[in-house]
Write a protein that binds this DNA or RNA. Sequence first.
DNA 1: GACATAAACGAACGTTCGTGCTTATCTTCA
DNA 2: TGAAGATAAGCACGAACGTTCGTTTATGTC
Lengths: 202, 202
Amino acid sequence: MRKGDLTRQAILDRATGLASKVGLEGLTIGALATELQLSKSGLFAHFHSKEALQLQVLDHGAAVFVESVIRPAIAEPRGEPRIRALFERWLAWTQSSPLPGGCLFVQAAVELDDRPGPVRDRLVQFQRQWLGVIVTSMELGIDAGAFHNVADPEQFAHDVYGVMLAYHHASRLLRDPRAEARARRAFDALLQSAVAPAETHR
Amino acid sequence: MRKGDLTRQAILDRATGLASKVGLEGLTIGALATELQLSKSGLFAHFHSKEALQLQVLDHGAAVFVESVIRPAIAEPRGEPRIRALFERWLAWTQSSPLPGGCLFVQAAVELDDRPGPVRDRLVQFQRQWLGVIVTSMELGIDAGAFHNVADPEQFAHDVYGVMLAYHHASRLLRDPRAEARARRAFDALLQSAVAPAETHR
DNA sequence: GACATAAACGAACGTTCGTGCTTATCTTCA
DNA sequence: TGAAGATAAGCACGAACGTTCGTTTATGTC
C-alpha cells in the first residue's frame, strides 16, 4: 500500500469520528487538517472536493459497519440468535470508540433528509441495505421455523430501527442511564411477539 | 403589540421552518434575512447573538408544539383516546406547513446531542417535558382503568417515541409511502399490549 | 407638529469556509 | 544513486460567517 493511501485512510478514520459529532456538513476541511496536523491544501488534494470527501466518509463508515456489525452477526445461526446479534452489535457500534458522536448514519440521516444530491442518495442506499439485512434475517428465521409465518419482516425491521433510534435519543441527548435497559426490553417484546408458538413455551 | 414584536414574531416563524430543514447550526442570519427581505444587521439587532436566536427559535417551536399537539390532545378523554390523540397530532405536526424539514426537535436532538451549552440544555428540558406528557397521560389512563396496572408508563413513552422516530426516518429520508401505515401499526401494537383485559375483548 | 424612541439599514470588521495554483519535499524503482 | 512521479505544503482567491458601528427612516407621545 502506497504512502498516500495510508494517510488517506487515516484521514477517513478521523473524519468519520468527527462527522459523527458535527455531521457531514459540519465536518470542515480546516478542522480536520488541524486535527491530523496536515495543511488544508494537502488534505484537500486527496479528495478534490468536499462532496467527494463526504461520500468517502460515508463509504468508509459503511465498510466499518459491515465488518463490526453485519458480518459477525450473519455468522450467528439463523433465527433469534442472528437477529439478536444484529441488535446487540448495533448497540455496541454506537458506543464504539471511533464514533464519539454516536452513529454516523443516524446523524447523517437527519441532516440529509431534505438535502438532495449524491451524498443523500448514497446514504439512502446504505440505509435500505441495512434494513434489508434485518428483513432478510427475519425471513430466513421464518423459513427455519424460528418465527411464526404471520410475522411481517418489513414491519419488524422498521420497528427494530425505531427501538434503535429511541435508544440513540435517550442515551445521547437525554443521557438517560436506563436507555440501554429500555432498548433491550423493547427489543425483547418485539422479538417475543414474533417467535413461533413452539418457541414461546419452551 | 409594538411593531418590533411583530417582525420578531415573523422572523421566528420563518426561522423555525428554516431550522427544521438545516438545523439550528445551519440556520444562518444572512439567509434568514434574505428570505424575509431584511438587512442582516436589522435582523441581528432583534436577538443580539446567534445563540439567543437559537434559544428563541426553540422556545417559539415549543410554544407552537404545545398549542397544536399537546393542548388539543389533553382535551380528549383519559385513556386510549388521549394517548392516541397525542400520537396522531404528533404525526400531523411533522407534516405541518411551518415545518418543511420535518420536526424541529428531531433535527435539533441529533444536532445538539453532543454540543454542550444553553441551547442543548433547553432542548433537553423540552424533550423531557414532552416524554413526561406521555408518561402522565399513561398513568392517568391506568388510574382510570383503561390500561392494566402492570404497564410501565416510562417504557411506553420511550417506545412510542421510537415509533415516532422510525416514522420520521422512513418518511423523510427513505420517502417510504408506507411509513405512516407502519407507524400506526406499530403504535397500535404498543397500545394493544397496554390496554386492560376488559378492554381487549370488547 | 415637535420631539424622543424604536426599528431597520449599509458598510465594514476579522474569521473561516471551500477551492485553486505553484512550489518543495518526499517515495519509489530502474 | 538518481531520475520520475507521487505527495504535501505554501499562498492566495472570493464568498459567507457572526458581529459591530454610525446613520437613517419609521413610529409613537405630548
